[in-house]
Amino acid sequence: MRGQLAGLDCCAGLGNIDFGQADLCVMSQLLTYVDPSDPSFVAAVLAIAFNPLYWNVVARWEQKTRKLSKAFGSAHLACYALGSTILLLNVLRSHCFTQVMMSQPRLESLDGPVTYLLGLVLLVVGSVFVLSSFWALGFTGTFLGDYFGILKDARVTSFPFNVLDNPMYWGSTANYLGWALMNASPSGVLLTGVVALIYVVAILYEEPFTAEIYRQKAAQSHKRS
């Protein structure tokens, strides 16, 4: 309990301290409970970082060479194959995430009904965003079909895309945060921050490409009309 008591002492007099100091205090309390040298923690970070790197590298390679489509004899089959590997990697990522939470200490100040309920709400909201995003995009739209030349008539703007951009990514992040809070896991909260950071990088890399694809499609449609 030494780490927890130190963290609580740190935060004991925050009434007159600004939120920046409070955030640093909370972070120091969380880090007291996290062992980043733990092999399971390292494996989780690698799994979180690898997934977007994998699908972006493979999808860009396909977009430039069409070798996956040629190998499978169909752009749709190739997209299904890539999507299946992404799903498997996401299962592995979630497994690694859960293993870290199970192997590292819980934070007692997070272990209560209010935090559990907040985590459950985040999990439900995140699942709604992920599932509704998948429903709106379909399998090929979700799993990089535009890199395979499989385009919709226009970019999807219906729910949940009319609520926030990249709902699949942020819904997934909410799921991880909710799961971490429900397990009172400071390591889970920290790993959720890694998930969010990696998704921000992925969005910065992917968004301009997707926007350009649909800009070109709109320009071609305008010329034909």
Rank of each mutant, 00 (worst) to 15 (best):
Y54C: 03
S69D: 12
F50I: 12
Q63D: 14
K64T: 01
W55F: 15
F50L: 15
D35W: 01
S74P: 00
F72L: 04
T65D: 05
A43H: 13
S69H: 11
L46T: 08
A44I: 09
T65C: 04
A75E: 14
K67Q: 10
Y54V: 05
F72D: 01
L46S: 06
V58L: 09
Y54R: 01
A43D: 08
V42K: 14
W61K: 06
P52R: 10
K67F: 11
S40K: 11
A43Y: 11
A49G: 03
V57F: 14
I48Y: 04
I48E: 10
F72H: 10
E62V: 04
Q63F: 05
R60K: 06
E62G: 03
V57T: 14
A59S: 15
R60G: 00
A44Q: 12
T65H: 12
A59F: 06
F41V: 00
F72I: 01
V34G: 02
E62A: 05
R66Q: 14
L68I: 08
W61S: 10
S69K: 10
S40L: 11
A78C: 06
A49Y: 05
V42R: 14
I48N: 09
A43S: 14
W61I: 00
A71D: 03
V57P: 00
A43E: 09
N51D: 15
D38G: 05
K70P: 00
D35P: 02
I48T: 13
A43Q: 14
P39A: 04
Y33K: 10
R66F: 09
W61R: 07
W61N: 09
K64N: 08
G73F: 07
T65S: 12
P36F: 12
A75G: 15
F41M: 09
F50R: 07
I48F: 04
D35I: 00
W55R: 13
A78P: 09
R60I: 08
P39M: 07
